[in-house]
Structure formats: C-alpha cells, structure tokens
Design a protein around this nucleic acid. Structure first.
Lengths: 337, 337
DNA sequence: GTGAAAGCGCTAACAC
DNA sequence: GTGTTAGCGCTTTCAC
C-alpha cells in the first residue's frame, strides 16, 4: 500500500508538504504543487482516511440504523439518507435491526467504536423501543437524529406528517360523499399507525361522522391483514361505503376482499391507501393513496445531523427548530372517485 | 473521549495489558482481567477501531456498491449482505449509484481511501458498465465480488440463475397447455433481462413452440411498460394465450391490459411474472412468479468475499469455485392455472 | 514556502 | 504475566 512517504520521496518533498497540497489548508508553490500531484497520480495514491480521522477526531462517517428495508418507505428513506450524505461528503455506515424493537446496545457500541460523527435512527417508534434514550445517555453519544417518532424534548426528530396525511385521506373520502368510513390501521403499538388512526378519529368527529369500534380494525401492514380486515368490516358494518387502509399493502388486500364480496370499487366502496408504492397506480382499480416523500425525509435528516455535527465541532449550540415535519400529498386515483 | 490510557490508569496496569484483555490474544491473569473489565465498564470505554485498523491493516469493513434500492430485488440483496456482514463481524459501508451505468471512479476511490477490506458490487451488469474492470486494475484493488453479471474469467460472481428461473416459467406455461407464449422482456442491455429472454427463446424452441418477433416486446421493468407491452402483443398476435413478463411490475401492467382488453386471466391468457414481490400474491388474480432468493444471494456474496479476504491476508490462493449460481423457485398461483 | 518532529489511539515486539 | 517502546499513516505545530 502506497503511503504519504512514498509520494514524498517520489516528489522530493516532505510528507507535510504532500498533506498541505492534498488538504489545501496551506499555500504551496505552484511548482511543488504540480510535482506532488503528478507523483500522486503516478503512484495511484489514496490518502488513508483512517489515519487522518485519528488526528482530526472526525471519521467523516455517519451511520444509519434502520429496519424493514424490504418495505418501500424505509428503503426510500435510506436512499435519501445516502444521497444527502454523499452530497455533504460523508461516508455512510449501514446497520440493520431485525425488528424495530430489537435491542440497540450492540449496534450502538459498534458504531461508537467506529467513532461515527453522527447517527440517524431510521427505526420507527414501536412500543417502548425508545426507552433506552435518557438524558444522561445522550451526553456521551454523538449527535443523533430520529425518524418517525413522537417529538420529545431534547431529541431531534424528522418525520412525515402522519396526521396530516391521514386527515387529507379522510377528508377526501367525506368530500366525495362517503358517510360510513372504516379504517384498517397498522399495529397500534407503532407510533405512525397510531397517528394515522388518531387522525381518522379526529377528522371524522370534526365532520360529524361516526367512529364506532365497528368501523375500526387493526392490521399488521400486510396485504393478508388488509384482506381479512375488510372482510371483518363488511361483516360488522354492511353499510360501509369507504375504507381508509393505513398502507398500500393493506389497501391491496382490501381491494381483493371487496372484489370477493362483490362490492364494486369505487361505486359501492371507496378505498384509500398510504405510501404510494409504485405499484399502487396499477392496482385494480388504481389506488388513491398518500405520498409521503420519504426520500426528502431522509435528506432532511442528514442535513439536520450535519448542522449538529458542525455545531458540536465548533463548540456552539444548534440553531433552528428541533423537529421537522414534512407534508405528504394525496394522490387521487380511481379507487375513490 | 476515553482512551486506552485512561483505562490503564484507572485499572493501574499498562495500556498493553488493556489491549491484551480486550483482544484476547494473550493470556492475562484473572485478577487483572477483572480489574480491567470493570474499569472499561465504569468509564464507558469503546476502543477506537480506527486506530486499531491502522495497525492491523484491516478496517473490518466491507463496502457494498448498489443501485435501485427502491426495488425489491436490490433491497433484498442489501439486507442479505448486511445480515451476513454482521454475522461475520464486518461493518458495512453503503455506496449508491444513481444508475447502474454511473461512473464508478469517485465511489471506488473513496472506498480505497477508507481501506475497506473488500467490495461487493451489487450493481446489475448493464451495457458496458463493467468495462472499467481490467486485470491490471484488479491488481491494485481489494477483494471484490460481483453480483448479477455474466461470469468472467478472473472475477468472482454470485448471481441467481436467471436462465433457470425463466426456463421454469416457460415450461410451466407449456405444461399447462399454452401454445402461443409471448414475452415482455426487461431492457435488453441489462444482462439479467437478456438471460431471461434467451431462456424463453431456447425453451420455446426445445418444446417446439414459435418464437416469432411478434411474440416478443421489450419493456423497461415498469408496470407502465408491461401494460403497453401486452397491449402491443395483443394487437400483433390476437391468438396469444400466455405471456411471460420478466418482472412482477410488468406482469402487473400486463394484468391491467388484459383486463382492459376483456381477456380473462388465466382462462384466456396465462400470466407469469418474476421476482415474487410481496404484493404479487394479492394481484387480481394472484400472480404466478419466480422467487429468486436475493437475500441468500447477498449472504453468499459476503461469505465468498470473506474467504477471499482471509486468503489474501494469510497469503494463499482462494479455494473453491469462482462463481456461485443460486436456483430460483417457481411460485404457482391463479394467474396461470 | 518547506522540513523536522511530535503525536492521534492503538497493537506488537521485546524485555524482564 | 506484565511493562516499555516503537510505529501504523497521517496532520500540525514550530523552526528556518
């Protein structure tokens, strides 16, 4: 492996000068500069970032701890995080948890050993999987940004506005004349699922529509649970004329159950989903759904983290709001017209 | 930040002893051992892996260069890679390309600076996006494993068997009595798309079925192109009684086009897809498709890379086959019954 | 503008 | 078994 000394020898200058040329932190004469650059080129030299980090106390690396990468939302989020990290000059370390509520200790300790400059927790809040975060704990940890969780004092949170998205969905159904609007929720120990469900309740009340228990079933994000969910709703409330499924997979299952029960969508039953997976526009019928813009959530998280890292490094407090909430957009298609 | 010296002072031993305890490479007496461990615990010490790497000449990190993470196959692959990396004790560096044919120089050079122990190229082979790989180039690069590309002397390749999967799909259609079997291919400058298409041609010929140009249209993996593709096939060949769409999104588009044209699936037209995305089982009707097992492809790639890294480190040549081909499995559902 | 030397946090010889 | 020391590859004073 080529080191800075090899290059120094070749260019007939000292290692310090090589460093000055490459980091650009100090002036170097044009002559030596070009000599150094061509030596670098000829030898195929790549400065060892690890050695540099040791001195700078910055690894130029951020970590993302994520889960459920096989789903659309999470993978979009990671894409956004990678893009922005790249743009800001960070390397990205990827660490996956099997479940949102897997213990974090091992992953965290590995990342600390790696001296990552910051961490993005792209793990949804589920049950009490955030209880490890205490003020004392935070003291000894690098800057962190949390995604998809309830705002909490002392934490920086970036999320899509689940309430806002769900509200748009329900309002749209009411606006198109639906009166008996059911909901198939995600697992209610997930924060995002609860937010969407709460927004359904609240919006229905505001409009003056019923929110009986018989209009509400809990799914587990899977198409199977959506199918089962709508079947159940149809039994409990044969008069139902619309259903808000809290993700597109469950909406897909609901579409199937509606078909099987002989209910035409949208004539007899309107269906709205959540997420806007690419396939949604090709469901039978094309699905009305909520586009969350998770790529932008990921990007925003990295930008936020970057300002925190810079602030810590320069020793001043971070300015600006601690929480960022991105507005989703309703995509209206056949399933609710 | 706590360093090894802080721990040494606290435990009243030398830094070397701390290292011996933590790396376990040399015997340490039970007494000092426990003293050290509790000092580590009390101070919350995390050894600086970067400093360690500097000496060991091993970063304990591998990189994955990927693209298209928003699609099911690629994200599954990355999940598999992460799992196996974790199991083998590697950190995972994630680097995404915007397109499979984006230039690799920048990404590569960044990874070299990082001294990653190996690289997995989870980027599908497209056009000539592999032409940068030359024997001389490989000399100066760390061990690498390539995914989803044609085997090539000197390279280690891990892939799912695209020909095998496509052959199963076509045979299945023929076995169920279909005679005029069309194909909607992926973009033919993709290696995987070409493999599946070639297998269609070959299998059809073996069975003695026609492979006219009119039975073949090229899509771009999207549902829209699948819809358009089937529309075109139906115009060219009204007698068509089956179609093999080379991924599930295009199959979904085809399903829609069939519906619009009044062709019943599977009675009038059988449809088979590829990938087995989770939604496929809930299409109308449920889609017959090919399960590739990309998680296992990712895992196999990391295991392979690991043996190469170990071999290089210990200075002997790698044993075992250079290429690994994993067998996919046909999932038969309503769309082809 | 450039060189010499110290040191980032750790491990590995080498002593004892 | 444990301490001492050199040095991994780089940046950064401090001289000149």
């Amino acid at each position: 492996m080529i080191t800075i000394k090899d290059v120094a020898k070749r260019a007939q200058v000292s290692p310090g000068t090589i460093s000055n040329v490459l980091t650009g932190k100090r002036r170097v004469s044009e002559l030596t500069r070009s000599r150094v650059l061509s030596a670098v080129e000829e030898l195929g030299y790549h400065p060892n970032i690890l050695a540099r980090s040791l001195i700078n106390r910055r690894s130029e690396t951020i970590a993302v701890v994520a889960t459920g990468l096989e789903y659309f939302g999470p993978s979009q989020t990671v894409v956004g995080i990678e893009q922005e990290s790249h743009d800001l000059g960070y390397f990205l370390m990827l660490s996956l948890l099997y479940q949102p509520d897997s213990p974090v200790e091992m992953a965290l300790s590995a990342l600390l050993g790696r001296r990552v400059d910051g961490i993005i927790w792209a793990v949804p809040e589920v049950s009490d999987n955030r209880k490890w975060i205490t003020p004392e704990r935070l003291e000894h940890l690098p800057p962190m940004v949390f995604l998809s969780m309830a705002p909490r004092p002392g934490l920086t949170v970036v999320a899509a506005d689940n309430r806002g998205g769900a509200t748009q969905a329900v309002r749209h159904l009411a606006d198109t004349g639906r009166r008996t609007i059911g909901v198939i929720t995600g697992p209610l120990h997930w924060w995002e699922a609860r937010e969407r469900c709460d927004a359904w309740v609240e919006t229905m009340r505001q409009i003056g529509l019923p929110t009986d228990d018989s209009l509400q079933v809990e799914g587990n994000w899977s198409a199977a649970s959506g199918e089962q969910g709508l079947r159940r709703l149809l039994t409990l409330r044969p008069d139902i004329d619309a259903v808000f499924a809290c993700n597109d997979q469950m909406a897909l299952g609901a579409l199937r159950a509606a078909h099987a029960a002989g209910r035409r969508v949208p004539e007899d039953l309107a269906v709205v989903g959540y997420d806007n997976i690419p396939e949604a526009a090709y469901f039978q019928p094309p699905l009305t759904t909520v586009y969350q813009g998770m790529i932008e959530v990921g990007r925003a998280a990295v930008r936020k983290l970057h300002t925190m890292i810079e602030a810590e490094h320069d020793g001043y407090a971070v300015a600006g709001p601690l929480n960022t909430l991105l507005s989703p957009e309703l995509m209206i298609r056949e399933s609710s017209r």
